[in-house]
Nucleic acid binder design. Structure first.
Length: 495
RNA sequence: GGCGCGGUACCCAAGUGGUAAGGGAGAGGUCUGCAAAACCUUUAUGCGUCGGUUCGAUUCCGACCCGCGCCUCCA
């Protein structure tokens, strides 16, 4: 079994093979850094992150590049509104995006910024002009002549043949030859950033940056191009037109698009009041791991309905996996090995791999790990787990977490960062009691908690249950942890 | 209007031409000084509706109803 992926270009699931032996070159359209990232953004980036993780787990070397759009109309507008330079403005939100990505467990790709490649973009336009594909209008803007690219529409399955006859639509209004022709380069306007380049002053159109940067970073033809489903048209269609008309080569073999999510059954929008940034959720006290788990649990091509009930359920699911790991890590097994457990670990890894190979079916991969968890817990209760079984079972869990990245618990420090950010931004009023508790919990050190646990243990040994229970209750509240008495002693963990 | 996706138990959500994964929640139970964790049992003769094909359909086909996306820069 090997990876099979849905390809928007062919509208089919196809076997994925990189163009070069063992190296996958992939590109994702990153954020426009004009605001804090919302959970819809992160669904997309998590999906691509899991793909990238799975490719590496499958033995490929992955070169994963993402662009940062630090130049567009909204940025110019908002920077002016805030009275800061475009650079100051984008630096703030790029930093926030990278912090949020790390918070949500996204491994950082190689980044390229639009503003760092202006000259190359101008050169790209110049080459298109040379080929007669792009043209300049009187004001100094440049447009792409889609009549020169008959395949235009092949990705989004749109038929523009009716417009390719040179019909001049609203020429006066648009100052271009066809209404469908799109801007490659925008002539300077008063008050807007402008660059002096080989093709004159101005700034690049949005689509251009991805064509230029992907080519520079990954070559004229690479393996996979990813983004949200809204980018199919016009963004990716235009990228294809620009790049392929210039090189005559296929831009990307696979086109990977992530479906939009719904929030509480409705499209997420500010007007509906169901618009959430990642930070909004953390401020409410939700753990990054819960958010990632929920966003990862529905296969990327299906609509995901993000609900607070679902977020709660995700939190419990992650908890179950963490409890499992803690139990296996604790040791205390009789010597020897149980062949069934060894087999189970291997089969689980195979099932997870087969699920992900099947167009990244994350839901099935989760089912596989949970079935293993139940079987192993059951064997555990029956005393059938032996010393040598822990390692392979933990390895299976680790294989899961290499993709999902939720079992390892670093929620506390990450939530503390958001907490600190809220204070510096003067948003203390938005910090929920839940987040406050979690942050306080993270502040009680492990040794401090351990000391209390030992006291509880002593009291229990003395069968002074009233005192031990009281101290336990007090510690649970003060440190926001969970304490369990087991036959092998007390174990604790942070809530 | 054009193109496309989906409607599965209380909630989230996989999946298959041969009789419904997984997680959460609820109920009962086991273990336990208590609590927690864990385990066991239980919760869809049913997979939007109506037809059709078939020995047999939730799975294929058709119609209809409902939800969602894209159709000039929203992931």
């Amino acid at each position: 079994m090997a990876l099979r992926l849905y390809n928007t270009m062919s509208s089919q699931i196809e076997a994925f093979h990189p163009l070069r032996d063992n190296e996958v070159r992939m590109y994702a359209c990153g954020p426009t850094v004009y605001d804090y990232g919302h959970i819809g953004n992160f669904r997309t980036f998590i999906a691509v992150d899991m793909l990238q993780r799975f490719l590496r787990q499958s033995g490929y070397t992955v070169r994963y590049v993402m662009n940062i759009t630090d130049l567009d109309d909204k940025i110019i507008r908002n920077a002016a509104r805030d009275g800061v330079s475009v650079q100051q403005y984008t630096a703030k939100y790029e930093k926030a995006f990278l912090e949020d990505s790390a918070t949500i467990g996204i491994e950082q790709p190689a980044l390229v910024r639009a503003t760092e490649r202006i000259a190359q973009m101008a050169d790209f336009v110049a080459k298109l002009v040379e080929k007669g594909i792009a043209y300049r209008t009187d004001d100094g803007s440049y447009y792409f002549r889609i009549a020169k690219f008959p395949q235009y529409g092949k990705l989004s399955k749109k038929d523009f043949s009716g417009m390719l006859d040179g019909a001049r639509v609203d020429v006066d209004e648009y100052d271009k030859d066809s209404a469908r022709d799109f801007a490659l380069w925008k002539a300077p306007k008063p008050g807007e950033a402008s660059w002096d380049t080989s093709i004159g002053p101005g700034r690049p159109g949005w689509h251009l940056e991805c064509s230029v940067m992907s080519m520079q970073e990954l070559g004229e033809s690479f393996d996979l191009h990813a983004g949200g489903e809204d980018l199919v048209f016009p963004h990716h269609e235009n990228e294809i037109a620009q790049s392929e008309s210039l090189t005559g080569k296929t831009l990307a073999r696979f086109w990977f698009h992530v479906r939009f999510l719904l929030v509480e059954g409705e499209k997420m929008s500010k007007s509906l009041g169901n618009f959430y940034t990642l930070r909004d959720l953390v401020l409410k006290g939700h753990k990054p791991s819960s958010i990632r788990y929920l966003l990862a649990s529905v296969p990327y091509r299906n609509q995901l309905n993000f609900t607070f009930d679902g977020l709660q359920q995700a939190a419990v699911s992650v908890e179950r996996l963490r409890n499992f790991r803690q139990r296996l890590s604790a040791g205390n097994f009789p010597p020897g090995s149980n062949l069934e457990m060894q087999t189970l670990a291997g089969e689980t890894i195979d099932r997870m791999r087969a699920s992900l190979d099947d167009d990244l079916n994350t839901a099935q991969a989760q089912a596989a790990i949970f079935e293993m968890v139940r079987s192993v817990n059951s064997a555990f209760d029956a005393g059938q787990i032996k010393k040598d079984d822990a390692a392979p079972l933990l390895a299976a869990l680790e294989t899961f977490d290499e993709i999902f990245a939720v079992v390892k618990d670093d929620d506390g420090p990450k939530m503390k960062e958001v907490f600190d950010w809220a204070l510096t931004e003067g948003r203390e009023k938005d910090v929920s009691a839940e987040l406050r508790e979690t942050v306080q919990s993270a502040q009680m050190s492990g040794t401090e908690i351990q000391a209390r646990v030992e006291q509880i243990q002593e009291l229990r040994k003395a069968r002074n249950f009233q005192a031990s229970d009281a101290l336990r209750a007090e510690t649970i509240t003060a440190a926001n942890i969970i304490i369990e008495n087991t036959k092998d002693g007390i174990v604790w963990r942070r809530k």
